[in-house]
């Protein structure tokens, strides 16, 4: 049997269980409307309002971009690692060039201080 069918069965089962567990409070819990309760919690102070359009440090964005660069590198390494023995020294050389380019990239972002968090 195709193992992906088994995976699909697993998915369906887990989705049902997770759904029931998420909805348990909605099904079983009390429902009492209360003005104070429906407000967000800001350690007891009156809430400052919505966060839509709020500004936050650009560092998080930079981290995400760097992640895309280096994680794609790792993703490319997986198929290479699986067939590594068949590729031999030639495959190692090619991957070494690829990794070297990205290592230079890492050295660069390190040097310009993109990895510094202050």
């Amino acid at each position: 049997m195709n193992p992906y069918i088994a995976l699909l069965i697993s998915f369906a089962l887990c989705a049902i269980v997770a759904g029931i567990m998420c909805g348990a409070s909605w099904l079983l819990g009390p429902k009492v409307e209360n003005k104070a309760k429906s407000e967000i919690f800001e350690t007891g102070n009156p809430p400052l309002g919505s966060i839509r359009g709020i500004r936050f440090p650009v560092k998080f964005y930079l981290t995400a971009i760097l992640f895309v660069v280096f994680d794609i590198e790792v993703v490319f390494m997986y198929p290479w690692a699986v067939v590594f023995r068949r590729l031999g020294w030639m495959g190692l050389g090619e991957m070494a060039v690829f990794v070297a380019v990205l290592a230079v990239g890492l050295a660069y972002v390190w040097r310009v201080g993109a990895l510094e968090w202050d």
Partner: peptide
């Protein structure tokens, strides 16, 4: 599981 499910407004 028996607690109220609160969603902020």
């Amino acid at each position: 599981f028996h607690k109220e499910d609160v969603i902020p407004k």
